[in-house]
C-alpha cells in the first residue's frame, strides 16, 4: 500500500534528497557571481536538467537491457546461455549458447587488433618522433578521414575488395563471407584511434626526456622505443583498449562481411557471427516483441554492453593509474 500513499516514507527520503541536491545546485558556485536573478535561476535549473540527461541515458540503457534480459532468463536457464557454445536462435530447435557469438566477436576483434596495433603504433611513432611537421600536417587529416568513413562503407570494401583478394590467396574454397576480411577492415577502421591517441600520448612526453636520451648517444629508434614509448605507455595501452572496445562494438562491417554463421571454430577463413551482427540479424526480421528471439536480443546486448563498458573503464583506469606525472 505504501506505493499509493501520497507521502510514503521512501518518497519522502527521495524528495528530501532531491531538495538537498537542488539547494546545493542553486548556490552561486563561483566567486563574484552574486545572487542569481529569477531568470538566471530558471536557466541554471534548465541547464542542470540537460546535464543530468546523460545520467538518465545511462540509466535508461541499463534498465532497458536488464528488463528484457530478466524476461529472457525467466524462459531460458542461465546455464543454457553461458554454458553452451552453439547458437541457433532462429531455428525450430533453439540453442542460446552465447559463447559462439562472443567467440566470433573476439576473433574479429583479435584479427583487427593484429592489423591495427602494428600499423597504428608505427604510424604514431613515425608521426610523433620522425615526421617533419609538413608531412604530419598531411598525414593526420588523412587519418582523420579514415576515422570518419562510415562503417557501412568499410563493409562494402570488405566484401568487394578484401574478400576477393583473400580468395585469390587461399583458394576458392574460402567463402566470400569470412572472419578474416571482416577482421582486416575492422583493423583498418581502428588504426586511426590507436595512431591518433597514441601519438597524443607520445607528444605529451616532455622534450627534455628525449634530449636526455639523445645526449647519452641514443639513436632515434632507441629514443622512440626505450624512452618515449615507455613514458607514454599508459596512453598507448588506453588507446589500444579503446580501439579493442570499438572493434567489439563494431556492427555494420562485421554484419556485411563476417557472414551469419555463429560458430566456435578457430579458422579465420570461415564465416562467423558477432554479437552485434546477431542483433542486426534479429532486428531486420519482424520479430514479435513477446517472442524469445526478441528477448535474447537484449540478453546478447547486455553481454556486449558489460564487455565494452568493462574495457572502457579499464582503459580509463590504466590511463589514470599509470600516467607519469611530469612537472
Amino acid at each position: 500500500m505504501a506505493a499509493q500513499a501520497p507521502h510514503g516514507p521512501q518518497q519522502d527520503t527521495v524528495r528530501s534528497l532531491l531538495a538537498e541536491l537542488w539547494r546545493e545546485r542553486l548556490q552561486p558556485s563561483r566567486p563574484g557571481s552574486g545572487r542569481e536573478t529569477p531568470v538566471g535561476r530558471l536557466i541554471h535549473g534548465a541547464l542542470f536538467l540537460t546535464a543530468t540527461l546523460s545520467a538518465f541515458v545511462t540509466i535508461g540503457i541499463v534498465l532497458v537491457l536488464i528488463f528484457e534480459t530478466v524476461e529472457f532468463f525467466r524462459e531460458v536457464p542461465l546455464l543454457d546461455f553461458f554454458g553452451s557454445t552453439s547458437w541457433s536462435a532462429l531455428f525450430a530447435e533453439k540453442q542460446f549458447g552465447v559463447w559462439a557469438l562472443v567467440w566470433g566477436t573476439g576473433m574479429i576483434a583479435l584479427i583487427g587488433l593484429a592489423v591495427a596495433i602494428p600499423l597504428g603504433l608505427m604510424a604514431a611513432i613515425f608521426l610523433s618522433e620522425y615526421s617533419p611537421p609538413r608531412l604530419r600536417a598531411i598525414v593526420k587529416p588523412i587519418l582523420e578521414i579514415l576515422a570518419g568513413v562510415p562503417t557501412v562503407v568499410f563493409g562494402y570494401f570488405a566484401l568487394v575488395s578484401v574478400s576477393p583478394v583473400i580468395r585469390d590467396i587461399f583458394g576458392e574454397d574460402v567463402g566470400i563471407y569470412n572472419a578474416l576480411s571482416a577482421g582486416i577492415v575492422v583493423g583498418l577502421m581502428i588504426v586511426p584511434i590507436i595512431a591518433s591517441l597514441s601519438e597524443d600520448a607520445m607528444r605529451a612526453v616532455p622534450r627534455s626526456l628525449r634530449e636526455g636520451a639523445y645526449a647519452l648517444g641514443s639513436t632515434r629508434m632507441e629514443v622512440s622505443l626505450r624512452v618515449v614509448l615507455p613514458a607514454a605507455f599508459s596512453g598507448v595501452v588506453a588507446s589500444i583498449i579503446l580501439a579493442a572496445s570499438r572493434a567489439v562494438g563494431e556492427t555494420m562491417a562485421v554484419t556485411i562481411a563476417g557472414g551469419g554463421n555463429p560458430q566456435f571454430g578457430v579458422n579465420p577463413l570461415e564465416a562467423v557471427q558477432t554479437m552485434t551482427a546477431m542483433i542486426v540479424q534479429l532486428s531486420l526480421g519482424d520479430t514479435p516483441t513477446t517472442s524469445i528471439e526478441f528477448k535474447v536480443l537484449f540478453a546478447v546486448a547486455m553481454t556486449l554492453f558489460v564487455l565494452t563498458l568493462g574495457m572502457n573503464i579499464v582503459a580509463q583506469w590504466v590511463s589514470r593509474r599509470f600516467r607519469e606525472e611530469y612537472e
Binding site: L209, A213, Y214, A215, L216, G217, S218, V227
Partner: peptide, 28 residues
C-alpha cells in the same frame, strides 16, 4: 653524444627506476 655528455637546465630523469636511469646509456 656518447663521448660528450650533457646535463640539462631542468632535471630530466626518465620515468624509470634509479638503477635503470643510470644503466640506460650503458645498455644502449
Amino acid at each position: 653524444r656518447r663521448r660528450i655528455g650533457m646535463v640539462f637546465q631542468k632535471p630530466n630523469p626518465f620515468p624509470k627506476s634509479i638503477y635503470e636511469n643510470v644503466a640506460f646509456g650503458a645498455r644502449i
